[in-house]
C-alpha cells in the first residue's frame, strides 16, 4: 500500500492538514491502520522531494498547523503512478502450501486431513464475508467498502477451489 501516493491523491482535490489526511486515508483504505506519525513522516519526505509544499497557519488558542498542498511535480508523480500497473501479490508460498507439502512427507500425517481443516476454516471466513455482503446489500454500504468485501469473497472462493484441486490431484496421485 503506497501511503505516499494515497496522500498525493488526497491533496489533488485541495490543501489539507495532517489530521484531515489521516482521516481521508482511513476512508480510502478501511482495512489499513495508519498512525499520525506515519502521516507526518511521509509528508516530510514528500516536501523534501518537492512533491508537496506547506503553509504554516497560525491559530489563536492552539499550536500552529501546517496545511499541505500538491506541487506541479507532485501532480505529475500522481498521474504516472495511476497509469503504472501495481505489484500483484499472489501470496503463493502460503502456510497451507507448506503444511500440505510437509504432510506428504511425514509419516502419520495426512495431506487430505490438512486440506479438510483448511477448507473448513476458509469456509468460516467466507461465511462471515458473505453475510457482511448480504447485509450490505440490504442496508446499503459505500461502494468502496462493498468492492473490498467482494474482493475478499472472490479470493476466498479461489482459495477454496485450489484446495479442491489439491484434493483431486493428490487422490489421483495416490491411485497411481
Amino acid at each position: 500500500m503506497s501511503v505516499k501516493h494515497a496522500i498525493l491523491g488526497l491533496l489533488a482535490k485541495g490543501p489539507l492538514h495532517g489530521y484531515e489526511l489521516k482521516g481521508g486515508f482511513e476512508e480510502l483504505a478501511p482495512t489499513t491502520e495508519l498512525n499520525v506519525g506515519q502521516v507526518y513522516m511521509t509528508l516530510d519526505r514528500l516536501s523534501r522531494d518537492r512533491l508537496v509544499t506547506y503553509e504554516v497557519v497560525n491559530q489563536a488558542e492552539r499550536p500552529d498547523k501546517k496545511v499541505y498542498a500538491l506541487t506541479e511535480e507532485g501532480r505529475k508523480e500522481l498521474k504516472e503512478w495511476l497509469a503504472t500497473p501495481s505489484a500483484i501479490d499472489l501470496n503463493l508460498r502460503n502456510e497451507t502450501f507448506l503444511k500440505l507439502m510437509l504432510a506428504r512427507r511425514l509419516r502419520g500425517a495426512d495431506p487430505l486431513k490438512v486440506l479438510a481443516v483448511e477448507r473448513r476454516a476458509c469456509f468460516e471466513r467466507l461465511h462471515e464475508v458473505a453475510q457482511a455482503q448480504a447485509r450490505a446489500e440490504q442496508e446499503g454500504i459505500a461502494v468502496h467498502s462493498r468492492l473490498l468485501l467482494d474482493l475478499a469473497a472472490l479470493r476466498l472462493d479461489a482459495f477454496l477451489k485450489w484446495l479442491d484441486h489439491c484434493e483431486d490431484t493428490l487422490k489421483k496421485e495416490g491411485k497411481r
Binding site: P30, E124, H127, E128, V129, Q131, A132
Partner: peptide
C-alpha cells in the same frame, strides 16, 4: 462427505472489513 455448521453473523460489515487483511 462432510458437514459443517456455520455460526451466524456477529460482526457488522465494517468490522469484517477492518479485519480483511489477514486473508489466507
Amino acid at each position: 462427505a462432510e458437514e459443517q455448521h456455520l455460526a451466524p453473523a456477529s460482526r457488522s460489515p465494517s468490522r469484517v472489513l477492518e479485519d480483511l487483511e489477514t486473508l489466507p
